[in-house]
């Protein structure tokens, strides 16, 4: 289903790129999410002081609270992966919440964005595994007995591909579904504010899905750090 009106597409139309922008709204709106995040990061880091004020206060509570949470799951070694995890969380949260603003398109409602994010998260968990175990990390994939390697290797590979897929499709399905319901209700009963209850629930869905993606990536990293079974 096509969006009736997208703000950034008409902005890009000023530069003669309207056709490209109309076909790739997830790319342009991902840039918008990046701009929003960089702006807020700059705002918070502009005047860092020992006694925090407004913007720094909010970010300190959010970021240090999440850091303790991540470390309680992964152990002390997971602190190195924390910047990636919180970036994923904030990006997905901003992307999801953009779906609630008229004329904005949530970049997470496209399967391309989500696959990229999931590949980064799962790929990084393997990097962390090799980092903390060295070459022995491959034992995670080989099962207990050397004789069973031809059986266990494909099984583990399938299980790890399923992780990427499940991260991708969970986020994609939720955001795409929310977007579609809002659009259909807007067409059917927009005059009577029919999409309003769904949009109110959308705030909750956006938060929960961002948190689930963050939590599952944290757990994959924790699983990679753990000893081989």
């Amino acid at each position: 289903m096509e969006h009736p009106y997208l703000f950034l597409t008409s902005v890009f139309g000023l530069f003669g790129l309207e056709e490209w922008a109309a076909h790739h709204p997830h790319v342009t709106y991902m840039w918008l999410a990046m701009v929003i995040l960089i702006f807020f990061g700059w705002l918070a880091g502009k005047s860092v002081s020992l006694v925090p004020e407004t913007a720094q206060n909010v970010f300190e509570v959010l970021i240090s609270g999440m850091e303790e949470f991540v470390v309680s799951i992964t152990g002390e070694e997971g602190r190195k992966s924390y910047p990636l995890l919180i970036s994923l969380f904030l990006f997905i949260l901003v992307g999801n919440l953009m779906g609630l603003v008229p004329s904005l398109y949530p970049p997470t409602a496209s399967v391309n964005t989500n696959l990229a994010l999931a590949l980064i998260a799962v790929g990084w968990s393997h990097v962390v595994g090799i980092w903390s175990h060295g070459f022995k990390y491959i034992k995670h994939f080989l099962g207990p007995v050397p004789l069973m390697i031809p059986l266990f290797l494909p099984i583990e590979l399938i299980a790890h591909t399923a992780r990427v897929m499940s991260l991708t499709f969970r986020l994609f399905g939720n955001m795409m579904g929310h977007e579609l319901v809002v659009l259909i209700l807007l067409m059917l009963g927009g005059m009577f504010l029919a999409p309003l209850p769904v949009m109110a629930m959308g705030v909750f869905v956006a938060l929960v899905q961002a948190f689930v993606f963050f939590l599952l990536s944290t757990m994959y990293i924790a699983g990679a750090i753990e000893e081989a079974h």
Binding site: T161, M165, S166, F169
Partner: peptide, 10 residues
């Protein structure tokens, strides 16, 4: 979801 996806990936 991981059970379902594993079967389809295989």
């Amino acid at each position: 979801i991981s059970v379902a996806l594993s079967i389809f990936i295989g």
